[in-house]
């Protein structure tokens, strides 16, 4: 959970909320932030894209402010890496169909009632954290983001048919789940397993 931001974008929360306290207890290495204003929340997320981010996002804000749905779409315009859990005081049946579809199509990890047990929300955050730590594209993107812009745009791989890919291209292909991307994803995992089973300690413990 190093370098992880857990951000609650919700106008009914403050830093002393039990959920914040419990999040800090459960994820001591993560940085927990509460932001009441949805626009500022979005700004915060976009400014921290190089980190691992888990967002707990309120569905409804005060009059005149964007809704959680809008914020999710704005996040997704930029990245699919951020895990978003939608919280709402609304009855699920009153959320418009189209928005629910958008939640699925834009990879909202979960939609949860804000009267849910803290334990339930913690479980969802753990799930997000777990997925963050093992997703190949996440690991790769993290790795790429640690390199200079030049390095990121350098051709990295040439296929037998002569197409060249930069690291970013590879990442994009994995995200698109193209044939090439799927193959790369598989190869990266196989390589990792290969390294692991060679009996040499080449993979560090963390």
């Amino acid at each position: 959970m190093n370098n992880t931001e857990i951000v609650i974008i919700d106008d009914s929360f403050d830093m002393f909320d039990p959920l914040v306290v419990e999040l800090r207890e459960h994820f001591p290495a993560a940085n927990v932030t509460v932001i009441n204003n949805p626009d500022e929340g979005l700004k915060f997320v976009l400014a921290n894209l190089s980190k691992k981010i888990i967002v707990l996002l309120d569905y409804n804000f005060k009059t005149g402010q964007p809704k959680g749905h809008d914020i999710l779409l704005k996040i997704r315009e930029v990245t699919s890496l951020v895990y978003v859990i939608i919280m709402t005081a609304k009855q699920f049946s009153t959320i418009p169909h189209t928005e629910l579809v958008d939640f699925v199509n834009n990879d909202a990890l979960a939609v949860v009632q804000n009267t849910a047990d803290t334990a339930e929300i913690l479980k969802l955050v753990s799930k997000a954290a777990q997925q963050l730590s093992v997703r190949v594209d996440c690991v790769l993107e993290q790795w790429i983001s640690n390199h200079s812009e030049d390095k990121q745009n350098e051709p990295y791989l040439t296929t037998s048919t002569g197409e060249t890919y930069t690291l970013k291209d590879i990442l994009k292909e994995i995200r698109k789940q193209s044939d090439f991307g799927k193959k790369m994803e598989r190869n990266i995992i196989m390589l990792a397993i290969d390294l692991l089973t060679r009996g040499k300690k080449q993979v560090s413990n963390d």
Partner: peptide
């Protein structure tokens, strides 16, 4: 209804914290 539920959510989380 929305406001009451938000309020209940806060109370519930705090009560749950006590319980745990």
């Amino acid at each position: 209804a929305h406001a009451v539920r938000t309020s209940l959510g806060k109370i519930k989380r705090k009560a749950e914290f006590f319980k745990d």
